[in-house]
């Protein structure tokens, strides 16, 4: 079997003294979409931040490998240049930069990149950003900022794309639009970890699903398993 695109194994992380991730393990296969679900505070964002070594978080134990190469312990910019690109929760645009500049600064050339993202291609994907190319990112609407956050991550030509709640705070039509975009990226062969609270959106898009609770992985399986068994969702996510 080919190596996993992203393989997280036994990951522990701490905020200061407080132990927030406990031996988190999951694997993403190339070209697939892994949905990461969990209640508020389950540790999903912490997990993304630990992979990227952001927010004073770093892997205390465990390994993170990207196509077989261990990247745990690298600096965040080095990790991004290796090809793990994050759409962060809350978008975190560079507010005083224009839309075009936000995309420009995130561009990474990568040898053997199948995708070859450019500013023009991002503008093709999100025509609304093209119209606002010269506008400051801080003045965009929430939906436009989300598109820009996705576009900015794509500019890094990700080998693995991490998306942390891209549907958060968006009106239903926009959620559907973001969903279509993600489906399109997946169809182009992009490997994606999708963190979501929106269970339906996740199950529509995901091949595999991981559910976290209080910093631990409590379920790992296929999306179909969950679709067939409501008990899994009600047990771990406390809904339905």
């Amino acid at each position: 079997m080919a190596t996993e695109a992203l393989d997280i194994s036994g990951l522990d992380a701490y905020y200061g003294d407080s132990h927030v991730l406990h031996a988190v393990s999951f694997a993403l296969k190339g070209g697939r979409l892994l949905g990461l679900l969990g209640r508020n505070g389950a540790g999903k964002t912490t997990c993304m931040a630990t992979i990227m070594v952001m927010g004073f978080l770093k892997p205390r134990r465990g390994s993170i490998s990207l196509y077989g190469e261990n990247v745990a312990g690298l600096a965040p910019d080095a990790i991004a240049r290796k090809g793990i690109c994050l759409v962060p929760q809350g978008r975190r645009m560079f507010r005083t930069l224009t839309v075009r500049e936000n995309l420009m600064v995130a561009a990474q050339a990568r040898k053997a990149a199948g995708s070859g993202w450019s500013i023009d291609r991002v503008f093709e994907l999100f025509p609304r950003l093209a119209e606002r190319a010269a506008q400051l990112a801080g003045s965009l609407s929430g939906g436009e900022q989300q598109m820009l956050a996705i576009g900015r991550a794509l500019m890094g030509n990700p080998r693995v794309l991490l998306m942390d709640e891209p549907s958060e705070g968006l009106a239903p039509q926009l959620v559907a639009e973001v969903g279509r975009t993600i489906a399109q990226l997946k169809a182009e062969g992009q490997s994606i970890v999708l963190v979501e609270q929106n269970i339906k959106l996740t199950l529509d898009l995901a091949d595999d699903v991981v559910i976290m609770n209080t910093g631990r992985v409590v379920f790992r399986g296929s999306a179909n398993e969950i679709k067939l068994d409501d008990a899994i969702v009600s047990q771990h996510l406390g809904v339905f």
């Binding site: 990227m52 560079f94 936000n102 600064v105 500019m155």
Partner: peptide, 22 residues
């Protein structure tokens, strides 16, 4: 681009690293 990268770093240093800016 260098100037834009510096401004990105002024805006949000951590996120700047996160998108691969050295």
């Amino acid at each position: 681009r260098l100037g834009a990268m510096i401004r990105a770093g002024v805006d949000d240093t951590e996120m700047a690293r996160g998108v691969g800016i050295p």
